[in-house]
């Protein structure tokens, strides 16, 4: 158990706890906030694994932008401040979802754990290297990504602008 393992374990526990609470809480806003915690934990884990840039981006994009967006959306859709009773689910659904999650985790773990046959040296990939590959090898997906963002932006704008079409069958 090296120091890295310890650090990783700590981040992982944070991530798992955050994730668990984000999934089980009945307060919608809390769910979003617990997600922040979980993502921070994941970012920590990634940091430990040596992917500083990814961790940073995760925090910046997810915590900084996505979660805020989610919160806004919750507000706009008039989420209640307390427990979200309108979208409460029955116990069977909860148990079923839990079992589904357990099964997924179990399946994944069962195939992955045999691969982990010991400690390995953490490969060092510097941010410079990453940047070089990103703008060298991966330039084409990167450009496509920009188009994707553009399209998402245009689409989101158009959708959010509301139904200004004169579709006769539109419900006012």
């Amino acid at each position: 158990m090296t120091a890295l393992d310890t650090a990783f374990a700590a981040s992982a526990v944070l991530a798992v706890l955050g994730g668990l609470l984000a999934v089980v809480t009945r307060h919608v806003v809390h769910a979003a906030l617990w997600l922040v915690v979980a993502l921070l934990g994941v970012a920590g884990a990634l940091l430990v694994l040596g992917a500083e840039l990814v961790a940073l981006v995760l925090v910046l994009v997810y915590v900084g932008a996505v979660v805020v967006l989610v919160l806004f959306a919750l507000m706009l859709t008039r989420a209640p401040a307390g427990p979200d009773l309108a979208h409460a689910v029955g116990p069977w659904r909860a148990v079923g979802a839990g079992l589904l999650g357990l099964a997924s985790a179990g399946l994944l773990a069962s195939v992955l754990v045999p691969l982990a046959d010991g400690s390995v040296d953490r490969a060092q990939v510097t941010t410079t290297q990453v940047a070089g590959e990103l703008f060298g090898t991966w330039v084409w997906p990167f450009e496509l990504l920009s188009l994707l963002l553009l399209a998402a932006l245009v689409g989101a704008l158009a959708v959010a602008r509301g139904h200004r079409s004169r579709d006769p069958k539109a419900v006012p």
Partner: peptide, 26 residues
Amino acid sequence: DLGGWLVALELATVPVVALVALRGTR
């Protein structure tokens, strides 16, 4: 490559979601 494949696939999907919603009807 995985990256191009993944990104292109989402590029082919995300705008369509917006397209369907664009009509704005119920």
